[in-house]
């Protein structure tokens, strides 16, 4: 099932409010290859969700300005008529969210919430939609799918709820799934199951997945590529194994150092000192500079995303400096 690539090109998301504008995403460019799973990582507030929502056109146009481009194959995701956007959501691109308790409608059965995707896109009659929905539930590993079909979200466990949400999102086999922290609200063992499910969907059905997460461990376990965002900017892109092995951006390596170790229960997290700068008040130059141990004079100048190879780029002055490009402190934890 050869498919299309998602190409995000100089995407920006700016929130307007009474107090001013707020650039949550700036000049973000990355690609999700067909059938690949890409991790989008970054601290809280770095613009990951804003990016994901922009791809599905879920921002409120009254308060949000979206710039740049995002294409999926031939489809320009950012310049669709409202009706066309409604048609593509759920059929071409899908999205799942962090907390299945709140993202599933508490008043509707699981079945209804899966069937409605099918009925709106495929116009099936009630009965065939139902049969199909039960198949989809089975596909996402829902035990007793016909029985669960009639259940309400509150009657299910967290893991099953997340499977239900995935079922609702992928019922019409979208080519791209944006998964916004799909495991954060779940137990560790369940987390692994859900990640494996997403990976399976990728492998078996050729679906591309953009996995938004804090968790570099998760990325390392299932993603082909990784995109690191910091304060609304993409700071590093590359194949997972190589990025995690040798991060090129100091921020990526600090993120890796900050993640909890699987083998070290109770160990202190290595918290990144300082705070993410407010996107509206970002300084010139590298945004991470105030928190960076490797900061130097050149960091104050304008930063570009520089290609390090065919599939790796980084936004850091030292990347183009041969002396530094090899090792960054704190790397190699993996």
């Amino acid at each position: 099932m050869a498919g299309d690539d998602l190409v995000v090109d100089h995407l920006s998301v700016v929130f307007r409010s009474r107090t001013g504008t707020h650039a949550a995403v700036r000049d973000a460019s990355f690609r999700v290859g067909a059938g690949r799973m890409v991790g989008l990582v970054g601290e809280s507030g770095s613009g990951k969700t804003a990016t994901g929502l922009a791809l599905l056109g879920l921002h409120d146009p009254a308060t949000t300005t979206i710039g740049g481009g995002a294409r999926f194959g031939d489809t320009d995701l950012l310049h669709l008529s409202p009706a066309a956007a409604d048609r593509l959501r759920g059929s071409l691109v899908g999205m799942i969210f962090q907390d299945p308790m709140t993202a599933l409608n508490p008043l509707l059965t699981i079945g209804t919430q899966v069937t409605e995707t099918i009925r709106v896109h495929e116009g099936l009659d009630r009965r065939s939609a139902r049969d199909k929905a039960i198949d989809v539930l089975a596909r996402v590993g829902m035990p007793d799918p016909a029985g669960r079909y009639r259940r309400y979200p509150h009657e299910l466990s967290g893991g099953l709820r997340q499977r239900a949400m995935i079922a609702a999102a992928i019922a019409c086999r979208p080519r791209l799934l944006v998964a916004d922290e799909p495991t954060t609200a779940l137990d560790l063992t369940i987390q692994a199951q859900i990640l494996r499910l997403l990976r399976t969907l990728c492998d078996d059905e050729g679906m591309s997945v953009l996995l938004i997460t804090h968790d570099l461990g998760a990325v390392g376990a299932v993603c082909d590529d990784v995109v690191t965002m910091y304060a609304g900017e993409v700071v590093e892109i590359g194949p997972t194994a190589r990025v995690l092995d040798r991060p090129s951006h100091p921020y990526t390596s600090r993120l890796m150092a900050a993640r909890p170790r699987v083998d070290g229960w109770g160990e202190q997290l290595d918290v990144i000192p300082g705070r993410v700068p407010s996107p509206s008040a970002s300084p010139e130059g590298c945004l991470f500079r105030p928190r960076c141990r490797e900061a130097r004079e050149e960091c104050a100048g304008p930063q570009e995303l520089v290609a390090l190879g065919p599939d790796r780029s980084v936004r850091c002055v030292r990347a183009s400096d041969p002396r530094d490009s090899v090792v960054v402190a704190g790397a190699g934890v993996r």
């Binding site: 593509l88 959501r89 759920g90 409608n105 409605e116 709106v120």
Partner: peptide, 13 residues
């Protein structure tokens, strides 16, 4: 609410 966003993400409008 999240479920409204989720419904919209499914193409419900």
């Amino acid at each position: 609410a999240d479920y409204i966003r989720m419904a919209r993400a499914k193409g419900i409008s």
